[in-house]
Design a binder for these strands. Structure first.
Lengths: 342, 342
DNA sequence: CTGAAAGCGCTTACAG
DNA sequence: CTGAAAGCGCTTACAG
């Protein structure tokens, strides 16, 4: 029971050509093949437990029904949720997904994309790391469809689905200010990524519109390496300013997780000592003693849309689509400031 | 810049046969090819930006350097962490990983395995759903290497890496009892999966060894569908017994997450009203107002070991390996019972 | 209604 | 040191 059965085996057994086997197994030339022989082929295929060799088929038809998913880290809940949505959508259309984690590293990203291109994936869904514009240019030059998710570059014209990060951060900051906070801080990554910089811009603009004079000590930019320690230091710094910050916006779930552990550990009172808003939904935010106010991204819609756009591109070669969803501010206890104006 | 460049293009340009191109690109027959022509081939390959078509190569060599990963749900942090470890290990050896989520459903599992077999994956790492023994038999019959992770079946002799669930649950239950709890409960899944039943067995055995008479109302078995509601009801039931349970062991992170949200929501005091131990590490367990005592699985070691065993099987066809790791009981506040004996 | 044959892009004995 | 040729398992004009 070892050897794989192929079309030739079926053809031989039924006494027809492999062409015919291929046709009936693919439901081609329906009316033009005698029902009896078609049935015999199907029966024999089932009997021999035939399974088409997708590799051979792919080579011939120049299509693998495989998509590559490149994220920063598949073990980050935001990306694994996205992966699950994408998996489901892709499977519906008989696509399979190969994933890779770039660790926000341009070299790794290029290596992954390169490997998957060699494997002839039909397209990519990518949450690009910074400085990976050239990867995308490469894909474009080679007519390999892709859609960016969560992040994009203003100077590369392509498909993407993301959220309006400026608006989201603005809304969150505005909310903190309306809650009576006078000195809102922010913890974000030190990056050239547009999406994160938009979050910072939204934060700054909200301060400005509320006539709050931004002080640059209020915004901490964390490097990707040694994130944990840097976040802890950042939070400590924000709270030990001569005029400490009274509220803080965490620009991602990773930053928030480290920050909150530290805050919890240090016994800092939320929202009393510090009001908090985070980007992204986390299981943890329900468990923090003050359930967290957070910006909820429509992960399901984003994943579905990205997959839909990609598959359309693969199958019909559609025009460019750029979709901005809105994040929703889910207001809970971590911003119920004692001296709230609301 | 559209057409893909193939070995023929290089061969033509250099003026040699494709055989030679293939040899030098694969570093074969090193001494037996003139250095100058070899160099010219390499230069031209680089110049034309040649990338070998893995699909064609796979078809020929009958190996795809791809492994299939089947888990219950890639968005479950336990599995996404595992996925990340496996990805890294696999990549080191130039393997790529395709994943699929079975949702604990045997039909889905079979569909996924079937699809990936058609794609000629070189092997599988599988966290099997219940009633999927036949899938595994199929793989064995077809000499497709695989290793089970997290779960296995006693009656299918194959590679697996897991933890000693009996021992883990026993230890956790013993710990609850030593903390002064007289009526420990358990929330687990209703399943035939050996790993989960071992957890129950460990719990029961610990009760017995401590002369605590088990009452069947203490152990709640949750069905896979409608998990959230069922868990909430289970916890409510455990606490509204005429003699309520004073402590509870959650048999998985999913069960714990739903249970804890409910407990938090209802204002149940932990560990005062209820001591808690959970299986699996969760971000959330650091944030619960009483940091949770939990059974930590050595996810990294498990993922690495599973990948190592699989790749050895693929490459050398090794004998069967069955590895049981130990979980570690990490003791924190959720089991610091007021009337502790310790 | 059906089959012979070419070809997808590689690898690999084999012959020289 | 190098090339012609077969073949991996499919699909698909083309011819009949």
């Amino acid at each position: 029971m070892k050897k794989k059965v192929c079309q030739k085996d079926i053809a031989r057994k039924v006494g027809v050509s492999t062409a015919l086997v291929s046709y009936v197994l693919n439901n081609l030339k329906e009316g033009r093949i005698s029902k009896t022989v078609a049935q015999k082929i199907r029966d024999t295929a089932k009997e021999l437990n035939y399974r088409t060799n997708q590799i051979a088929k792919s080579l011939k038809i120049n299509k693998t029904f495989t998509i590559g998913l490149i994220v920063a880290d598949i073990s980050n809940p935001f990306f694994s949720s996205l992966a699950r949505i994408i998996e489901d959508e892709a499977n519906k259309k008989n696509y399979t997904v190969i994933f890779g984690s770039s660790d926000e590293n341009a070299q790794k990203s290029w290596k992954l994309i390169n490997a998957l291109v060699g494997r002839q994936v039909d397209g990519f869904i990518i949450a690009p790391a910074e400085n990976t514009e050239s990867d995308l240019t490469y894909l474009k030059d080679h007519d390999i469809p892709f859609v960016l998710i969560d992040r994009y570059f203003r100077n590369v014209e392509t498909n993407w689905v993301a959220i309006d990060n400026y608006k989201a951060a603005y809304t969150a900051t505005q909310h903190m200010i309306e809650g009576g906070n006078k000195r809102p801080g922010m913890v974000t990554f030190n990056t050239s990524l547009y999406s994160l910089n938009e979050r910072k811009r939204g934060y700054l603009e909200a301060l400005k519109d509320n006539n709050i004079a931004f002080e640059k000590t209020w915004c901490k930019e964390i490097f990707y390496d040694d994130t944990k320690t840097s976040v802890e230091k950042a939070v400590a710094d924000l709270l030990s300013l001569s005029d400490p910050v009274d509220s803080v916006l965490f620009a991602s779930n990773i930053l928030a997780t480290y920050g909150l552990k530290y805050i919890h550990h240090k016994g800092i009172k939320v929202p009393g000592d510090l009001a908090i808003v985070t980007f992204d939904q986390m299981d943890s935010s329900d468990f923090f003693y003050a359930p967290l106010t957070y910006l909820k991204q429509p992960v399901k819609e984003m994943g579905e849309m990205a997959t839909k756009i990609l598959l359309e591109n693969i199958e019909k070669g559609k025009e460019i689509e750029q979709i901005n969803f809105d994040a929703t501010l889910v207001i809970r206890d971590s911003t119920l400031h004692p001296q709230s104006k609301l």
